[in-house]
């Protein structure tokens, strides 16, 4: 895995070899916050909280 600083250098320094994967990650830098909302998900550790209504009976 690349460390953060190396990754940043790859994103920002001019490169000659065509790398479609890197180009997509570079394009993400130019995205706006509205586009980033596509990343929102319920993929998280916690999907419930103390305010959750009680609907299961047992």
């Amino acid at each position: 895995m690349l460390n953060m600083q190396t990754f940043y250098t790859l994103l920002t320094e001019p490169f000659e070899k065509q790398d479609p994967y890197l180009e997509v990650l570079i394009a993400l830098i130019k995205a706006d916050r509205a586009q980033m909302s596509a990343l929102e998900s319920d993929l998280a550790w916690q999907q419930w909280d103390a305010q959750t209504p009680d609907v299961i009976s047992a």
Partner: peptide, 22 residues
């Protein structure tokens, strides 16, 4: 909002996406 814009521009989100894809 400005801090979140910086997260996008500095490549922090790109880094996370790279980590997800790998």
């Amino acid at each position: 909002r400005e801090a979140q814009d910086i997260l996008i521009r500095c490549g922090a989100v790109s880094y996370c996406v790279d980590q997800l894809l790998r």
